[in-house]
């Protein structure tokens, strides 16, 4: 793994929020689709600044355990994520990648205890969720938030194709 600091994400993902720590709570809905051939979408979740500069990967769901790493082949279909981050990474990446997820709402929690989030300079950011599906389409949603949070922020976006309801709650 080339990028320093990324391994700490493991702690970030697994760690529970301590008292006093700010928190990102994310709900990502993978919608049920009425299609003949359905595959779980690849999903990348990251933080960018207001200029679109990539700051931090939070999650990557893809076919990470296919034979001969065949599943990596389609990561470039997460077009924006591939350009901003993916193409610079060496796979497999530790800490933020995992298997694809089925239809339903998936909850993710990120505590600010991690040095990664703690080092995020104060300012305006966007949480980006990008989904791409084999023999399907692609969709990208951006949820703006402020860091560190002064007060509770709740941002909800509704996807129209590959993503369902996305909710981000940022707590001081």
């Amino acid at each position: 793994m080339r990028l320093t600091g990324k391994t700490t994400l493991l702690a970030l993902l697994l760690g529970s929020a301590c008292a006093g720590a700010a928190e990102l709570e994310l709900e990502v809905e993978i919608p049920a689709l009425n299609v003949a051939e359905y595959h779980h979408p690849y999903v990348a979740i990251w933080v960018e600044d207001t200029k679109g500069q990539h700051q931090q990967n939070l999650s990557l769901w893809y076919d990470h355990d296919m034979r001969d790493d065949e599943g990596q082949k389609w990561l470039k279909d997460l077009r924006l994520w591939w350009r901003r981050s993916g193409r610079q990474l060496e796979f497999p990446v530790d800490g933020f990648s995992a298997a694809t997820r089925p239809v339903g709402t998936h909850k993710l929690e990120f505590s600010s205890n991690s040095p990664v989030i703690k080092d995020l300079p104060g300012g305006d950011y966007r949480l980006v969720v990008e989904a791409a599906r084999e023999v399907g389409g692609r969709e990208l949603l951006r949820l703006p938030f402020q860091w560190p949070p002064q007060e509770r922020q709740e941002i909800v976006k509704q996807g129209s194709n590959e993503l369902g309801r996305i909710q981000l709650v940022v707590k001081p």
């Binding site: 001969d68 790493d69 065949e70 990596q72 082949k73 389609w74 990561l75 470039k76 591939w82 993916g86 193409r87 796979f91």
Partner: peptide
């Protein structure tokens, strides 16, 4: 023109 993976 844009590819990913171990080998492509």
């Amino acid at each position: 023109t844009v590819l990913a993976g171990d080998t492509a």
